[in-house]
Design a protein around this nucleic acid. Structure first.
Lengths: 203, 203
DNA sequence: GATCCCTTGTGAACAAATGCACGAGCGGCG
DNA sequence: CGCCGCTCGTGCATTTGTTCACAAGGGATC
């Protein structure tokens, strides 16, 4: 389920505060979801709770990390070093747990060679070689919309298994490749939608 | 529905190409969804299609824009001018359609006064006054996780109607305020999840 | 103006996700 | 050692969202 990362984060905070045990009720409260949902989600991982007591925080953190595949590093490549790409490259939380940015790629020859964070920007022609030699598993697309599909195709052809798309356009990938998208414009428009409807029909 | 922004984008591209009319089938293809879903979504806006022909692109664009509240500008304030906040402030697609960044706010006195894009960073103490005088409708939180809830509370207290949260933490808002979140870490972890499970159980 | 083709709009089947409610089982207390 | 209170795990009802299938209806052609 897609709520596991959320639980993971909450549980890590609890572990920092040396909290040893947590009930589904507390976890639900902190994660902003229903308690039954928490229990159902966690029961899919197997049975890690103790009736009458709750869940062991450390054990649950470990179990979720294992389920999410966070026990080993995933090499990440960022394609497109415009505003957003640079911000992502410098973003610390990125590498925080399990994700290591191992390559920055851009199509603009003027940018190639430039250093962002502690990596040099490489040309897109080298993409195949980079993905293969550094075992890149996840490709991040931060290019303009027009380039997104082609970059995606090249990443997939090079053997990337997952793509995170920030470009404001629909990209298609073969079914065996995972795709997630993050779209600022869409998010804003959804907020605008609610705002608009509140204005039209005030409570 | 949350698919309207997607349709809107596809339709705008079509309008650029001087395409006058579109069937639900075509639109579905380009948006990567089911044709029946497109029709059902659009039927919620009222009846704007012509049987046997399809939908008029220009008319549909206008109708969706109206529904989404994109016919007038929404003033946006960005709080937190770290890596991500700066990228957002410089992001052009932001202001592209209906969203105008009217204020940049940061808690760090060292940053106040600095110019990003064409706006000066203002102190967080001025938040109330800024929101009120500039009619800020949407607040964007790009602060560290620890500050997110407090910033959110202040934005809400100041009268903001919608919040877009980029900080990797759960923030709660009163029910009359809309909240969306964008969380890079979560997206990566979801990709990691699929990657992990593909590795465990290869097709 | 009648016929035919095409696409919409929608009712109904289907599927997925959510939430409730309660039985099962563990720990603590007397 | 038995009872009691607490919390997990889960079957079931309900809601929400998706998909199918088809009748209704517009436009073109003759």
């Amino acid at each position: 389920m897609s709520r596991l990362p959320l639980y993971s984060r909450v549980l890590l905070e609890m572990a920092d505060q040396s909290i040893g045990t947590v009930s589904s009720e507390q976890l639900a409260e902190l994660a902003g979801v229903n308690a039954a949902k928490v229990r159902k989600d966690l029961s899919h991982l197997g049975s890690y709770g103790t009736r009458g007591v709750g869940y062991d925080v450390a054990e649950l953190v470990a179990e979720i990390a294992r389920e999410l595949g966070l026990t080993h590093d995933w090499p990440v490549a960022i394609v497109g070093l415009g505003n957003l790409g640079r911000a992502l490259a410098n973003y610390r939380g990125f590498g925080a747990r399990g994700f290591r940015v191992v390559a920055l790629v851009d199509a603009d020859p003027a940018k190639v060679g430039e250093t962002v964070g502690d990596l040099a920007i490489e040309p897109i022609a080298a993409l195949d070689e980079i993905v293969a030699s550094r075992n890149v598993a996840i490709g991040v697309i931060a290019t303009p919309a027009a380039a997104a599909q082609e970059v995606s195709d090249r990443l997939v052809a090079a053997g990337v298994g997952s793509i995170l798309n920030f470009a404001p356009t629909v990209v298609s990938v073969p079914p065996e490749v995972s795709l997630r998208k993050v779209d600022l414009a869409t998010e804003l428009q959804i907020l605008s939608f609610y705002q608009q409807h509140r204005a039209e029909a005030p409570a």
